[in-house]
Computed example of a mutant assay.
Amino acid sequence: MPRPIRPRNVIRIGPVQVATYYDARGREKHTAACTAPRCGFSADYNSRPAAEIAATTHHCPIR
Protein backbone atom coordinates (compact mmCIF):
# COMPACT_ATOMS: atom_id res chain seq x y z
CA MET A 1 0.00 0.00 0.00
CA PRO A 2 1.49 3.38 -0.99
CA ARG A 3 2.11 6.04 1.59
CA PRO A 4 -0.46 8.84 1.68
CA ILE A 5 0.56 12.23 0.38
CA ARG A 6 0.92 14.71 3.23
CA PRO A 7 0.88 18.22 1.80
CA ARG A 8 2.64 20.99 3.64
CA ASN A 9 3.10 24.70 3.07
CA VAL A 10 -0.31 25.07 1.44
CA ILE A 11 -1.30 28.46 0.04
CA ARG A 12 -4.33 29.56 -1.95
CA ILE A 13 -4.11 31.80 -5.02
CA GLY A 14 -7.64 32.51 -6.19
CA PRO A 15 -9.39 29.14 -6.63
CA VAL A 16 -6.05 27.29 -6.94
CA GLN A 17 -4.22 25.70 -4.02
CA VAL A 18 -0.45 25.27 -4.18
CA ALA A 19 1.19 22.71 -1.89
CA THR A 20 4.53 20.98 -1.34
CA TYR A 21 4.84 17.24 -0.73
CA TYR A 22 7.28 14.34 -1.01
CA ASP A 23 6.64 11.74 -3.73
CA ALA A 24 7.08 7.97 -3.32
CA ARG A 25 10.82 8.25 -3.97
CA GLY A 26 11.34 10.95 -1.36
CA ARG A 27 11.75 13.83 -3.81
CA GLU A 28 10.17 17.16 -3.02
CA LYS A 29 7.37 18.04 -5.46
CA HIS A 30 4.97 20.94 -5.77
CA THR A 31 1.41 20.78 -7.00
CA ALA A 32 -1.19 23.28 -8.14
CA ALA A 33 -4.84 22.19 -8.08
CA CYS A 34 -8.00 24.16 -8.80
CA THR A 35 -10.78 23.76 -6.24
CA ALA A 36 -13.57 25.17 -8.43
CA PRO A 37 -16.41 22.74 -9.17
CA ARG A 38 -16.04 20.82 -12.45
CA CYS A 39 -12.67 22.42 -13.33
CA GLY A 40 -10.32 19.46 -12.92
CA PHE A 41 -7.03 21.39 -13.25
CA SER A 42 -4.08 19.94 -11.36
CA ALA A 43 -0.39 19.67 -12.20
CA ASP A 44 2.86 18.66 -10.50
CA TYR A 45 6.04 20.72 -10.76
CA ASN A 46 9.66 20.37 -9.67
CA SER A 47 9.89 23.94 -8.36
CA ARG A 48 7.63 26.02 -6.16
CA PRO A 49 7.78 29.16 -8.35
CA ALA A 50 6.58 27.17 -11.36
CA ALA A 51 3.56 25.93 -9.41
CA GLU A 52 2.78 29.44 -8.20
CA ILE A 53 2.99 30.87 -11.74
CA ALA A 54 0.63 28.16 -12.95
CA ALA A 55 -1.77 29.11 -10.16
CA THR A 56 -1.72 32.81 -10.99
CA THR A 57 -2.22 32.29 -14.74
CA HIS A 58 -4.93 29.60 -14.47
CA HIS A 59 -8.38 30.44 -15.84
CA CYS A 60 -11.18 27.93 -15.31
CA PRO A 61 -12.77 26.90 -18.64
CA ILE A 62 -16.16 26.31 -17.00
CA ARG A 63 -18.12 29.27 -15.69
Rank of each mutant, 00 (worst) to 15 (best):
R38S: 11
N46A: 14
R3C: 06
A19R: 13
G26N: 11
I11T: 15
N46W: 05
R8L: 08
Y45E: 05
P2M: 09
P4C: 05
P15I: 06
Y45P: 02
H59D: 10
N9A: 12
G14A: 11
P49M: 08
H59K: 15
R38G: 02
R27F: 13
T31N: 01
T35K: 10
A36F: 00
M1R: 14
V10N: 00
V18N: 03
T35A: 10
R12W: 00
Q17M: 12
E28P: 02
A36V: 01
R8F: 12
R6K: 13
I13G: 01
T35G: 05
T57H: 11
T35H: 00
I11Y: 01
R48W: 09
Y45S: 05
R6L: 14
P61V: 04
S42R: 11
P2N: 12
P37A: 10
R38L: 07
C60P: 05
R25L: 12
A19P: 00
A33S: 12
N9M: 03
D23H: 05
H58N: 08
P49K: 10
A32M: 04
A55C: 10
D44W: 00
F41S: 03
P4G: 06
D44F: 00
S47C: 05
F41W: 04
R27C: 12
T31Q: 09
E28N: 07
A51N: 06
K29G: 02
P7I: 06
A51K: 04
I53F: 10
I11S: 11
S47E: 12
I13Q: 08
P49S: 09
V16Q: 03
P15H: 07
A32F: 01
Y22C: 00
R8N: 11
I62C: 03
A36P: 00
P15L: 02
I62V: 15
H58D: 08
F41N: 03
T57I: 13
Y45R: 07
P15G: 10
A50K: 13
E52F: 06
I5Y: 03
T56G: 07
A36M: 05
C34Y: 02
N9D: 15
T20Q: 15
V18C: 09
R6P: 01
A55G: 04
I62T: 14
I5P: 00
G14T: 11
Q17T: 13
Q17K: 15
